[in-house]
Amino acid sequence: MRVLLTGGSGFIAAHVLEILLEHGHSVVTTVRSQEKARLVAENHKSYGKDKLDFAIVEDIAQENAFDEAVKSDPPFEAVIHTASPFHFNVTDVQKQLLDPAIIGTTGILKSVKKSAPTVKRVVITSSFASIINPFKGTWPEHTYSEADWNPISAEQAVQNPANGYRASKTFAERAAWDFLEQEKPNFTIATMCPPLVLGPIVHYLNSLDALNTSNQRIRDIMQGKAKDEIPETGTYIWVDVRDLALCHVLAIEKEEAANKRFFITAGYFSNKQIAESIGRHYSQYKEQLPTSSTPGGDFPKDGLYKIDNERVQKVLGIKFRSFDESIKDTVKSLQAVGA
């Protein structure tokens, strides 16, 4: 299949790219600069231009940003859209989080409908942020599934960056489903809703200072920043980036994934368990790591929401990696960039 992958140098997209190429697909990936394209190409030297090529999209929040990128010869049959901002050092929530996420998502759908009539499937990276109800706390009596939507309002969205991020994911995903309903395009969509994404970084795109937000906690624990007190876990569910990437690819390969939302989680974890897992596999960090009596980083005392991840297992046939394997491999990948 010929596939357009957006945001190709991102943490998740780099793994999606590996799997697309392994599965024999031909890929064009969007990147923000020629330099990023060079880095990715250099690390996939065995693939010619027919299998891996690039399109430069500098700013996904611009109207019509993807108009040229969606045109291809041979034409595209599928699009995997992973590009979206995720960071909290924000001064203007509307401009820096909401607009790029929403305009980026609807923008690519409009461009595909207008200029890539051969595309039959679009897969969009959304988030557990669009499922969770942030106003309910740990909500032990509730089971989260694809049926849940974050009820955040436009007014609440601009109150702070955390709200802004969750709202950006929620509004962008809703906009995609609305587009499907109103525009009735030739293509189906599938949305991927992962919680915290852990797992090995792709070394050629990352430095220790520029990690994806989720993996920063592993780096910090390795570096001794949790020795006296383990930070609160915050989101108590996770998935390995390689499993999530495989879900993106399976969603374009399997007919049954069409027009479905997928809540992609392997289960529960706590920051305390990260520290324990590092200690089990890497004795050299013993001095920096918290001990069993270090306060913080545990599960909430009053219980936690339940999760239903049956759809992703049934429809995509995914078998999730274990938490221990994920942490072990992540630490190894961080060592490779100097941790």
Rank of each mutant, 00 (worst) to 15 (best):
K254E: 00
L334W: 08
S145E: 01
R280P: 12
K120V: 10
S153F: 10
T106S: 13
M222G: 07
H15W: 13
V239M: 01
A69G: 07
Q34D: 13
V123N: 00
S127I: 11
Q335K: 14
Q273P: 02
P151K: 05
Y282N: 15
G296A: 01
P134E: 09
R174F: 03
A147W: 04
A78R: 12
E155V: 14
N64P: 02
K113Y: 06
G104T: 04
S33I: 03
S292K: 15
D209R: 14
D324L: 12
D228A: 12
L244M: 10
W177G: 12
L180W: 03
L205T: 07
Y305S: 12
T191K: 04
Y47N: 00
K71C: 06
L304R: 08
R174V: 02
T91G: 06
W177L: 11
S9F: 09
F269E: 05
N150Q: 09
D240Y: 04
S207W: 02
K184P: 08
Y236K: 04
V202F: 08
V79R: 07
F269V: 11
G104H: 01
P231E: 10
F171P: 13
I108M: 03
F76W: 01
E276L: 09
G303H: 06
I327L: 05
H15Q: 15
Q273L: 06
S277I: 06
K184M: 06
I318M: 12
M222P: 03
E310I: 11
V70P: 00
E181I: 13
N215H: 12
H44N: 13
K36T: 09
A55D: 00
A78Y: 13
Q284R: 14
K95Q: 14
P300F: 02
E77R: 15
H142W: 06
T125V: 06
S153M: 09
E232D: 13
F179Y: 15
H248Q: 05
N150V: 07
N212F: 10
I327T: 09
G296E: 00
L246G: 05
V119G: 08
V122F: 03
N259Y: 12
K328V: 08
I278G: 02
H15A: 09
M1H: 14
P231Q: 10
W238K: 11
K110T: 14
I201K: 05
K227N: 03
F323E: 00
A190D: 02
S153R: 14
F54W: 01
T191I: 06
I218D: 03
F299G: 02
P161A: 11
Q223G: 14
N64V: 08
A257V: 05
N206T: 14
N89W: 14
K260P: 02
P290F: 02
Q288M: 11
E155S: 14
W139Y: 14
D302N: 15
T6G: 02
P231Y: 08
F262N: 04
N64E: 11
K254W: 01
I152W: 04
F263C: 05
E22G: 12
V239E: 01
E35D: 15
V3N: 01
A116C: 11
P100N: 08
G224N: 04
L208R: 15
Q34L: 13
G297D: 00
G107C: 04
K51D: 01
K95V: 09
R311Y: 07
A266C: 03
G24P: 07
